[in-house]
């Protein structure tokens, strides 16, 4: 069966870069959460950048995953920045008030620059 969500993690200094592709719903949320958490606990990560460019669909399950990781990043004293958000996902972020706590920037380069990673 085709995976409806794929993702990859890349470490850039103390920033964990997460790129999501596909559809994020309740069915996909648990695995993403577990994989993401193991990176947050690798001892190298302080900040997180989430690239949403290729996230074509999301529902409240995604909001829960982002909010959960946001809290964990805060606990290790870091920041979470999202980038390349599309219109549909942006609407959900707006509705839920997530933009009040998570900054959104244009693209990966801007997000990494925000967190002090030299490119």
């Amino acid at each position: 069966m085709a995976l409806s969500l794929t993702y990859d993690f890349e470490q850039k200094q103390d920033v964990l870069l997460v790129r999501l592709t596909g559809e994020l719903d309740h069915h996909e949320a648990e695995q993403l959460k577990n994989d993401w958490q193991s990176y947050l606990q690798n001892g190298m990560t302080k900040h997180v950048v989430v690239n949403l460019e290729n996230l074509y669909f999301m529902d409240s399950s995604g909001l829960g995953v982002f909010l959960g990781r946001y809290k964990e990043v805060k606990e290790i004293g870091g920041e979470m920045v999202i980038c390349s958000i599309n219109y549909d996902v942006q609407r959900l972020f707006e509705l839920s008030g997530l933009f009040k706590i998570i900054d959104a920037v244009e693209n990966e380069a801007a997000a990494l620059a925000r967190l002090g990673v030299a490119l």
Binding site: D59, S60, L63, G64, V65, L67, G68, L92, L95, S96
Partner: peptide, 14 residues
């Protein structure tokens, strides 16, 4: 505890 954020009905309404 299941990382639900209580937004489902709000989204449906909107």
């Amino acid at each position: 505890e299941l990382e639900r954020s209580g937004m489902g009905f709000t989204i449906m309404e909107n």
